[in-house]
Design a binder for these strands. Structure first.
Lengths: 200, 200
DNA sequence: GTGCATAAATGCAGAAACTGCAATAAGCTG
DNA sequence: CAGCTTATTGCAGTTTCTGCATTTATGCAC
């Protein structure tokens, strides 16, 4: 979490951004599968080897900055006010993840492309699901720590699993149906409300 | 679902089994990552090319026969008796997936190795999660068809997502904690009970 | 049984993802 | 300036996975 400010770090982030933007553009153009890492690196004017210095795998270039939302949710749980009950905290945390960030053009374009490709590209779908899983584990852990007398580890996991499962399943159903972003968000909120009942 | 009985089919299943058993043995021995597909094929006395004729990817050899459970759950939903309500059907379907099959040594060994490796091998974990997702989609669809006047597509997805999410999350938490299979199953059942409340 | 269609298995060549290692170059630190 | 750190690079190599043509074995019709 420490912000390095040096010139070296600046350049590093530059090449990282260049890679992301190049990948984004190429994927839009030719489709995910038919773009090679070599091409991305080429378009970003770096060596192919450098790509893997920034991203563990080809898919990860599309999952950049995904952690931010999870961090928000984690903070929402950790910073619970004493009067807040379990359901309120959980709902607030999930709201953080559902809320559209999209502050700048790049990240919104990235998010849009990501959700489009997540349904059609198996490799990406798989990676995304993995992220969900680790996020779930983190959420469960902090939730259990926030309510140590009320939740054991297993129950916390089940709870988080239920909420995340419901929300993401309804989202993917809405997406598959061709809903607009606003409708998708609506579906997610309803799913959350549906499950929130079992929290009491 | 048609049972082909010819000699040709028999031999095909033989090589398939040989591949599975060879893979199983090698994975136990040397670990998943350090076993190549070429080695597996070699141990099964077939060509490497043949491996990919039977399995789409290296991971899939460990996910053989996974569909069976899902099919059971699907049937449990489709064959609902008229007097059964939504919660009963859902619980019965999930029970089908939780129940340990393990009729023969091979499949139980396979299941055990699979759950062990699912936590440590990212590629396998990813594939497994993908299976869950498609299974969820199928479950949601048949559930919605079984209760067409009670559930819309989104709600059905959310419901199934919640149940599967809770059950699998609690299972993975129990596994991570080092629980015995029986305890894991217990955790899954409790998670299901927890979520079943939101079904009403 | 002979001939033909079908399908499994094979071999080969190659694309693409990804890794290890050693070398370079550029920023940082005293 | 001197020395350390670190991003980047090039190269060689492994592994997964695919396309294609070929062989081999089975099934089927006659």
């Amino acid at each position: 979490m420490v912000k390095k400010t040096g010139l070296r770090e600046l350049k590093k982030q530059r090449t990282r951004q260049a890679l992301i933007e190049a990948a984004l553009r190429l994927f839009e153009d030719k489709g995910y599968e038919s773009v090679t890492v070599a091409e991305i690196a080429d378009a970003a004017e770096v060596s192919p080897r450098t790509f893997f210095l920034h991203f563990q795998a080809k898919e990860d270039v599309l999952l950049a900055n995904t952690d931010v939302r999870v961090d928000l949710a984690l903070r929402a749980i950790a910073e619970r006010r004493p009067e807040e009950g379990l359901p309120e905290v959980l709902v607030r945390a999930m709201d953080q993840m559902i809320a559209d960030t999209s502050d700048n053009d790049l990240s919104s374009g990235l998010a849009a492309l990501r959700s489009r490709l997540a349904t059609s590209v198996p490799a990406l779908q798989a990676r995304l699901l993995q992220r969900y899983l680790t996020a779930q584990a983190e959420l469960a852990l902090t939730l259990q720590r926030a309510f140590p007398d009320k939740l054991d580890t297993i129950t916390a996991s089940a709870l988080v699993g239920a909420v995340v499962g419901a929300v993401s399943a309804s989202a993917s159903a809405a997406l598959r149906r061709g809903d607009e972003p606003a409708e998708v968000r609506n579906a997610m909120r309803e799913a959350m409300a549906l499950v929130a009942r079992s929290v009491r």
